[in-house]
Amino acid sequence: MNKVKALIPTGLGFNCEYESAKAFELAHAKADIVDLRDIISGEVNLFDYHILMIIGGFSFGDDLGSGKAIANLLRFKKIKGKRFIDLIKEFVLEQKKVVFGVCNGFQVLIKLGILPAFDKNYEEQNCTLTLNNSGRYEDRWIKLKFNSKSPCIATKGLEFMNVPVRHGEGKFIAENRDVLNRVMDNNHFFAQYIDPETNLATMKYPLNPNGAVNSVAGICDETGRVIGMMPHPEANLLFETHPHWTRLKRKLKDQGKEIPKFGEGLKIFKNIVKYCEENCI
């Protein structure tokens, strides 16, 4: 079988290319780290790949608001005479491939209007990710609950996950009540920050680290193939990347259980690769 191929644009201030590529490799896909400018120049062809992952970082220093400057670049620079949006539409709608944005990548997708893309309109920004209620950038681990009703192909079969958030502008807001209702009612949201004691979505800081409305941590389009989330699943690839691993190790040893090799975050990448194996190859 041909291997699933993931394209990971980098450069211009993105910085999670290493762990994102490793995540796909551990999920048995091939990952290419490519300078975004080589994609814009047409030197590297998006359509040679099954997955486009827009990674975390500080593109252009987030100088005009997080993800905004890259969104501007992708909106106004044409790729071989075509608009980026049109390429994405072809990639997702016709070829049924996957676009996955994490953190800064999610911010780029939101600011381009590629998410949540009601009625397959991928050009209308109606949600945003803005400054955390704390007013600060923070690195902390949170617990997510996944929405089993969401069409998101990355979280199928998953219930909970521990992952870190590392952002200053991750507070999800919708333009108005109608937009928010649609995000919730049509299950565009696929992940929420929860209180680990009750497993319920929460507005309590720091369990909800940024004050996101309805505790939304990630949303997808109606196909479930354009996916964006603030937390970093690629930062929890090994058992030992979890902050409690020394505690968990003791517990598992006491229970006579085996110590797992991988971290929970890998499951998301495995799901994406599995989807592509079944549908794109």
């Binding site: 910085n15 999670c16 290493y18 762990e19 975390g56 600060r136 950038y137 929890n236 902050p243 691993w245």
Partner: peptide
């Protein structure tokens, strides 16, 4: 410590806070 990204690149095994 919180506002420093101490685990970008996904290789931090013991973090500054534990």
């Amino acid at each position: 410590v919180r506002p420093y990204d101490h685990e970008v690149k996904g290789r931090t095994i013991i973090k500054p806070l534990s």
